[in-house]
């Protein structure tokens, strides 16, 4: 699962390069240019991916560590 999360992040970076919408001015819902709509979806996908990363890829040794300099 840990690897799947990192693969998803790399996939997101690739999907971010949406050359296929480059000269398409279609308006999603009649007002939002598709190039902008798609990139907003990338932002949401990033949040979901990072949520999964905090569940499956969080360093186990750090769970429960409290702040303040260790003496």
């Amino acid at each position: 699962m840990k690897q799947a999360v990192w693969i998803t992040i790399v996939a997101l970076l690739i999907l971010h390069q949406d050359f296929w919408w480059w000269d398409d001015g279609y308006l999603v819902f009649g007002f939002m240019p598709i190039g902008l709509f798609y990139q907003a979806c990338i932002s949401l996908a990033a949040a979901i991916t990072w949520y999964l990363a905090t569940i499956y890829s969080w360093p186990a040794e750090l769970e429960g560590t409290e702040g303040g300099p260790q003496q």
Binding site: W50, P59, L62, G67
Partner: peptide, 20 residues
Amino acid sequence: TAKSANSFKVPVVLHPVFIM
């Protein structure tokens, strides 16, 4: 300044949504 390592989880997840 973070109190614990877990304090980072919320910023990591919500930062992209806030940007949007």
